[in-house]
Structures are given as structure tokens and as C-alpha cells.
Write a protein that binds this DNA or RNA. Structure first.
Lengths: 200, 200, 200, 200
DNA sequence: TATGAATGAGGGTTCATTCAT
DNA sequence: GATGAATGAACCCTCATTCAT
């Protein structure tokens, strides 16, 4: 991690410009074809300035990843648990996820690419996955306790499978497939969850 | 396609050596970090020889992709349709798929990475997907006709979702997760299918 | 034209060093055998620096050509027209041309070679030729009007032929023939002009 | 010079095919861009065969040069000296030269390029030039003796200048200028000779 | 003689990174 | 902090030449 100066107001403004420019360039050209000079040109600063704020391209990417992740997953704020019925909760969360994913699909392509090559990226993603998986797991357990989900379902396995599938479908639809709608996608995805959990 | 010749026995032997070496190197270093010289060193030939058989690294990769795909999917030979019960059929196919995928997991990492950058790779993958999807679709329709699967299931959607999930799980388990067993994985995956289709 | 920047003083100093080094190397080794690395070594900069200022060897050559052309032809500044007698005028211009050509003979070898291969070089040369040809043509017409040159001479044809011959002789003498003197060469060449024009 | 075997009938047939192919390729691609493999492909033999008959590309070129020179200059067979009037003789020779040059213009481009780079090519050309120059020189001397050419003309200088000019004009017209006619070109060139020699 | 796969030195070009201003 | 010219290791690719068949 870079622990550079940039304590000045001007400094953090430049840093922000580089992050935004970095994201735009990465989305446009991909992780490998994006050159440092592309990013600095887009940010309207000199190459040297880049190294004042980041160690290298990977460093920029890692910091960008954290930023974007917060943006994507920060929106999946759970409503009052138990206050609504399971199907509704699942549908809502799926819609939020797909909406956020779609908005960041281009960047996500880079994330996938990076995850395949950079040793620490999978870790970052896995950590986040773990969090959401456990959230799902607890919800399923709750529904089981309430008799809404069959007892033979293993909450941990279910959470893993459903999470994987959600992720993959979002990826197929919005990264590869250029799907545009969110409503029908949410329905398709939700039906899958309900089916698997034996809900409704 | 490369217009390179090498019609002799010796020629195709060298070509084979390069393909095998290429695969090993790609699995070890990834598509981007693999150097042509790495591959030729591994194959014990000179750099020039590489260009006698392939146009460039992408060309080698493409030819390799075809070869490996045949290897992975060629094994999913369907048993006599209808001769066995659906659950058994699904379980068998899943086991074959996971087994083949696991054996080629390292190479598949490259494929996924390439799909994100090379414009034609997604097409190659999609074409194959289409084939297997339609096979699944027809099987589901058959089971519906036989009253084994509920009529409200849409075969096309089901085939798409199940295929995506199978792919993603194999990926998470064997590429990222370093899962080792096939038996339990087959059970988990199959349960998902059966659940979704309302079988058993 | 190269879109490379280098707006600083240091930048243009390096660019100048590369142009001078390029000329020396081209004269010594010829356009084909000159390596980029030869030029950067001669200019005492690194290879990368070359590409900061030029697109490639041809680009350097083209820019050099313009510079040297200006040097060679810039000296053929006409004295007061009509103020001297034709023979004297022709003799003076020929001397200036031969002197300048001789000083740049080595580089001219490259120019001739390049003209045979690079599609745009002939154009550059032809443009300049046109200019000097028209200058000669007007002078001849003036002398005809003054009754100094026979009326049956066609000024355009004469200008073309005399120009071609002057060029070729300079080439044969100083590029191939290693002739050293300028005085006698000027006399020989001038005699040819006078004879052809029926002057003296 | 290569002194290879090729005593067989088949051998010299292959050699001939390579020479013809070499000429075609050189004319099409130029001296530098022509690759050995281009030539062997055109001749429909393998690369190895090339080295059975020639040492390298330069060797092929040199042998080709001799062949083509013979073809071009072999046609300038002088008619009975003195049997015709000088103007007629000059006109005829010029026509023959321009005709032959035009037919070989494409190859001549290569010759010029080679002359600028290969150390021995200028020698080959100079030798031939010397021969034709001395032929011209003797003709001029003869015409002087017959009182047809002014005694103050120096036959050696005149032969040199006229030869150079003829060569250059042919080059400008047919290599660079894409001139097509021969009749008018012959007239222009001949007028130059007659003027210079004070004939007619 | 003829073949054509194999060789590998050699050259062009890129681009992350540095550092003097 | 900011600049951008300079650096040079690294990599791709070509093609003349060889040699086993």
C-alpha cells in the first residue's frame, strides 16, 4: 500500500482526479491495455504526479476496487429483518444488487480480470463475499426457525450456491450479455432463490 | 487461422510440442505473463520455430482453446436419453462435467481472463454454451412431457440458469477455491438442479 | 508528422542532437544499415529518447531532408536579375549549387536511395525541382526577350533538361566520382548551359 | 561470385527460373523488401534450392544485373560507322537506348538503389559506361575529323556530359516521371546532343 | 539436386519508472 | 507538490542461412 504524503487539499484533489480518471480509462481500455500515461492524460496531470499518489497501476487499481466495492455493496442496506416476508426481502435485495452491478459492469470486467492474475484481489473479493454470505445464511436460518424454509436445507450451502449464482448471472447478463432490463432479471433471479429455498 | 505450412511428420510433431508447452506455460504464468520465449524454451525449440506454426501468442491460445474445449466437453456424451431417470442423468452429466473441468481448471483460468480481453473468445465460448444449453433444454422439455417436471418451468430459462450456475460453481470450487473432491461437489450441484426443476 | 511534444529548451536541444547524429550516421552507413541504436549512441542518449522526438527512422529522415534541402537550396539566392550578363549569372548559380551539393554529397546519397523506396520522398524533391525549374525558365524567357537567346529554344524544355543535367553531373562527380574541384566543374557545367542556350 | 555446381540440364533450368523470378520480385517489391522466400515462392522451388544456385540475394542481383545489362545495351548495335549522317546516327541510337531503358525501367530502379549501397555495383555500371562513352568519344572525334563537329569540342568531355544527361533523362522520364512516349523523348534528347555538338 | 523445418542473432518499439528542474 | 524528458530493460517478430532427409 502506498502511504504517500498528499495531505494538502490540492493533493487529495489530484488524487481524486487520478482515481476517477483511472476508473474511466480502465473501463474503456481494460486492465492491461490501460497505460499510466493514459490515466494521467485523462486526469490532466503529468506522469510524474501519478507516482506521487500511487505506487503503480496495481496500487491504483486496489484503491479503486475498495472505492467501487463500497459503492456497489453499500447500497445493499438491509431493511428491518423480519419486518417483511422472505420473498419480498429477497426480491428487494436482488433488485438492489442487480441495479448496482449493472451500473458498474464495465469496471467489474476489470475486477474479474485482476482477480485471475493479482494474488491479493481474490482475497479482497472473498472477504466481501463472506460477509454477504453470512448475512444470507443468517436470514435463511431465521426463515427456517420460522418454519418458512424446509429444515433439510443447509443454510451455509444454500447461501454459497445462491450467492455464486447471483454473481454469475449478473456477470453473464450485464458484462457479456448486454442485457438492459432490471425488472425481469430481478424476477428470474428471485424465482431461482425461491425455488431453491422452497419458498412460495 | 494461420497460413503456416509444416506438412511433414516432424513438423506436426513440433507443433504438438509447442501446443503442449504452451498449455503448461499458460497455466503456470497466465496469458499475459507468458512469453513466447518461455513457451519455446519449454518446448525445446527456438523462437523462430514458434512463428513457423503460429501467428502469435493469441493464435496459439485460440488453437489451444479449441483443443481443450473438445477435451472438456467431448466427454459429456449423453447416455441413452430416457433410458434412465432424470435425477440419475443429471447426476451423471454433472459428475462428468466437474471431473473434466477440474482436470482443466488451471487452463480455464486463462480462458476466463482471455474472454475478458480478446474479442473473439467470448464468441467461441458462447457457441459451445448454446449447444449444451439447447441439449439441457430439450431434456427438460422431455421430462415435462413425461410429467416429471412441473409444466410452469420454462425449459429455456431453466437451461440458462442451471448452466450458468454449474459453470460458476465449477469455477469457484476448482479455480478459486481449490476444492478437491468431486463426489460431494456433484451431490451439491445435482441437488441444486433437482430442487430447481422440482424433481424428487 | 510526429505528434511528440518536448516543448522545453532541453527537449529541443536533445532533438537537435538527434538530428545531427542522425545525419552523421546516415551519411556513414546509409539509410538501411543505420540502426536507431547507432543514432542514439552517436547522440549520447538512450533508445527511448529517440521515440520521444521521432516516430521512427523514416520520420527522422524526412525531417532531416527538409533541413538539408533548405541548407542546399537556400544559398541559391539570385543576385539582381538582369543586372549581370547571362553567362555570368549562370556561372555564379552553378558555382553556388555545386559548392552546396558537394558539401552535402554524402547525405544526398541517402536521399537518392530513399527516393527510390519511400513513396513521399520523390514528391518532396519534385516540388523543389519545380521551383528552381520555373526560376530558370523565367530567366531564359527574359534572355530571349532581350535577344540574347535564340527564339526557337523552348524555355520550359530547356529548363528541364539543364536542371536534370546539372543534378546528374553533380551526382556523378561528387557522389560517385569523388571529384574534388569546384572551379573546373563549374566551367564544364556552365559551358554546357551556354552551348545549349546558344549564349556566348 | 558463386561457383556452384548446376551442371545438369535440370539444374540450369532451375537457375533460370530463379533469375526470372528474382527479376519479377525485385521489380515488384524493390531490392530491400524482396525476401529470398518471395523469390523462391515465385520460382516455385524451395528456399534451400536458392542457396544451391546463388550465394545470397546480392549474388543473384549481380548476376541479374549482367543479364539485364546485356539485354539493354546489346541492342545498341552500331550501324556501319560513317555510312549515315551524324544526326541520324545519334537519333537512332537514342531511340534504341530509350526504348530498351523504358522496357527495363522497373528493374533499373533497383539497380540505382543497389549502386548506392553495394560497393561493387557502381563498378559494374561504370565499366559499361566507359565502353559506351569511348564509343561516343570516337564517333565525335570522327565527326570532328570530317569537319562536321567544331574542333574546340573536347570529345571526352562531350561524351561524358552527353552520356550522363542521357542516362539521367531516361531515369527522370521513365522511372520517376512515368513518361510513356518514345518518339518525342527521342526528339528532345537528340536535339540536346545536336545542340551541344553544334550539329545541324 | 531438391526440400522445407529449424535456427537465432538482430532490430524496432513500448512503457513503467526516475529525477532534475 | 507538480512537471515531463530521459531511461533502458524487456519483448515481439523477421528472415537469411543451414542441414537432415
Amino acid at each position: 500500500m502506498s502511504e504517500r504524503a498528499t495531505t494538502t487539499t490540492q493533493g487529495s484533489r489530484t488524487r481524486g482526479a487520478l482515481l476517477r480518471a483511472g476508473r474511466r480509462v480502465l473501463e474503456r481500455k481494460g486492465l492491461h491495455k490501460a497505460r499510466i500515461s493514459d490515466i494521467t492524460k485523462e486526469a490532466d496531470v503529468s506522469v510524474g504526479t501519478f507516482y506521487l499518489h500511487f505506487e503503480n497501476k496495481d496500487d491504483l487499481f486496489r484503491q479503486l476496487l475498495i472505492t467501487v466495492e463500497d459503492e456497489v455493496y453499500g447500497e445493499l442496506v438491509p431493511a428491518e429483518p423480519g419486518s417483511v416476508d422472505p420473498a419480498q426481502r429477497i426480491r428487494e435485495t436482488n433488485r438492489l444488487y442487480l441495479t448496482a452491478f449493472k451500473r458498474n459492469a464495465a469496471f467489474w470486467t476489470c475486477v474479474e480480470a485482476a482477480a485471475l492474475e493479482q494474488p491479493d484481489v481474490p482475497g479482497v473479493l472473498a472477504e466481501r463475499n463472506r460477509y454477504y454470505r453470512s448475512r444470507t445464511e443468517r436470514a435463511i436460518a431465521r426463515w427456517q426457525a420460522a418454519g418458512q424454509v424446509a429444515p433439510e436445507v443447509d443454510p451455509a450451502t444454500a447461501a454459497f450456491l445462491l450467492g455464486a449464482m447471483t454473481e454469475r448471472l449478473a456477470y453473464l447478463w450485464y458484462v457479456f450479455g448486454h442485457r438492459e432490463d432490471v425488472d425481469q432479471a430481478t424476477e428470474d433471479l428471485t424465482r431461482l432463490w425461491l425455488n431453491y429455498l422452497g419458498l412460495d
